[in-house]
Structure formats: C-alpha cells, structure tokens
Simulated scan of single mutants.
Amino acid sequence: MAGRYINEDTVESERPLKVCAEAGRKCVRNIHQYPVLSAEWISLVDSLKQLSRLVQLEGRMPANPKVLETQGRDRDSSGTLWDQEAHENAIRILVEEAKVNLCLRMMYDYKKWQYNAAERQATMDEATKAYESTESTLEQKCVQFEECLGTLLRKAFVHVETLQLMDIPLLIEHCAYILQSCFSMESPGDARLQETVILYYFGSLMRHAEALNNSELLARSRDVQLVELAVGHYLRFADQFPEELKHSLADGLSAMADNEDFQTEWEYFFPSPDAKSNFLLLEEKLTTPILQEKPDKRREIRPLLDFFNTIKRSL
C-alpha cells in the first residue's frame, strides 16, 4: 500500500514536467526561418518567449536525484542532456528536433539585418504600415526575439553533445561577426543581447574544443582572430558584464590554455606583442577579481594562470 502511494506521488510530481515538455516540443516545432517582421516571424517570437519562460521555470526546479541511479551513467560526470540532474527539457527537445543549427542561422541572419541600418529601416517602415503598428512595438518584438533565442542558444551550447551536432564554422563566423560589429559601439547594451551573450558562446566553444574537431576549430578561430576579438571585447566592456559571464569566459580561456593542440601553436594566435600584452590585461581585469571573490577558483583556472606566465616569458 505504501509503495502505491509513493508511486502515485512520483507520478504526480512528474506531471508538470510532462506538461512542460509537451508544450516545449510544440513550440520547438514552430521554429522555422521567416523574413524578419513578417507575420510568421512575429508569431514565432511568441513561441520563443514561451520556450524561454520554460527554460527559466526549469532552472528553478530542484535537481532530480533519481538520475544518479540510472544504469550505466558515469557518476563522476554531471551527465548529458538526457541523464543529468538538472531539468532542461526545452534545450533537450531543441536538440532532439534538430533545431539548434537553424536557431543559430536565424540569429546570424537577424543580426546582419539589424546591423544594416538602411535595410532595417525599410523593413520597419513596411511593417508599421502593414500591421498599422508603431515602430516601438516592432522594436520590442525584435528585442524579445534576440533575447529569447540568444538564451536558448547559450543554454544549448553549454552541452558538448549540442556542439557536436553544430555547424561549428558558422558559430565561429557568427561570433567573429558580432565581435567585429561591436567596434563602433559605446556599450554592449542589455546583458541578454548578442553583444554580451556572444562571450558565453566563445567560452563554450573553447571549453569543449577538444571534444569537437579540435584542429579545424582552432584553425578557423585563428584565421578570424577570434581569441583577439573576444579578449578585446571583454577588456573594452569588462565593467558592464555580469559576474556569471566573467566566470564562463575564464573557464573557456582556461580550457583553451589547457588544450594540447593550442599549446603547440599558441603563438600563432598572437601575431604581435600588442596582442600578447592585451591578453595579459585579463590578469588584472578578469582572473584577479574572480580569485579575490572566490579563492578556491584558482585550481579550476590554473591553466590560464600558467598561460599568463608563458606569455610573459615570450615577451
């Protein structure tokens, strides 16, 4: 009898998750590429908002300890999207439905549209007439699109199994494009926009590089000067970035410094003494503040701290 009640409690506690998963899958299947500010695109924003809310809801749920009992699970790891303790149904479904590459392409195309002032204004003018709407209302839709889609991508890229299915050259191209486009900006803006979130993407790329096509990833990153771009962007706006991003960036750079392929060719990533000197500024602007707040983080970012010394010896 007691066992029956326990089972009923378990089923009852899992019911909201099943409802969320069903709603999430429906939203994910609504994701298609449409022209920016078309009627279909505006409807898509609502699906992305719902998915983003689901991600936030799942983030507040307590971890599921039962997955630790899963047969064959590596108890020393934090698990994959399919057997981790954290609830990330929305992200898992995004991967299962093979929508992550599409989401990245949508974001890349959206940002190219946004940065093209003439095209953007022409689309805005056309949409305000077509929908008898105001430009500020449509601007809000654009912000919602970027924030929600950016959050989904950021959460997805945390997982190596997502990146293993990604068009990595496109992701590198997107990162470089955003970082280059920020040269003329005075601020990265809201922390949920690509001008900030892009550093999370960069951190995830570097953190998981060795589990991907490492040599190609590093070669492409070197060709577009991705490390220089990311470091320069961070240094320029360091005071405006959230603490979570700083830790993510430090982890990514530490993994990069610990990457065996990177270690053999690291000087190619720094073609000038200025590039090396800029990277060393991270010691003051990134790692020192982190270690002052969390001294026990030193062990995690030891490869990055050692790499600072390697660069100093080369100057």
Results as ranks from 00 to 15, higher is better:
213 N>I: 06
244 E>S: 14
2 A>F: 09
90 A>M: 05
243 E>V: 13
3 G>A: 15
298 R>K: 04
229 L>P: 08
214 N>K: 03
245 L>H: 04
125 D>L: 09
10 T>D: 12
239 D>T: 05
123 T>I: 01
145 F>M: 10
251 D>P: 04
254 S>R: 10
201 Y>K: 14
103 C>Y: 00
13 S>Y: 02
89 N>I: 05
135 E>R: 09
44 L>E: 00
73 R>K: 03
307 F>R: 06
311 I>V: 15
144 Q>F: 01
160 V>W: 05
51 L>P: 00
27 C>E: 03
79 G>S: 00
54 L>D: 01
2 A>L: 14
261 D>T: 10
279 F>D: 09
102 L>W: 05
272 S>R: 12
300 E>P: 01
100 V>R: 08
130 A>C: 11
31 I>L: 10
238 A>R: 14
93 I>W: 10
218 L>A: 11
257 A>S: 15
270 F>K: 06
27 C>G: 03
200 Y>V: 08
59 G>S: 08
276 K>Y: 11
161 E>P: 10
141 K>L: 07
196 T>A: 09
84 Q>M: 10
173 E>H: 08
200 Y>Q: 12
144 Q>E: 14
204 S>W: 12
206 M>R: 02
202 F>K: 05
18 K>H: 15
293 E>T: 02
244 E>L: 13
124 M>E: 03
65 P>H: 04
249 L>V: 14
60 R>S: 06
79 G>V: 00
117 A>Y: 11
68 L>P: 05
120 R>V: 04
11 V>R: 04
116 N>D: 15
105 R>G: 00
202 F>M: 13
46 D>H: 10
84 Q>F: 02
277 S>E: 06
131 Y>S: 00
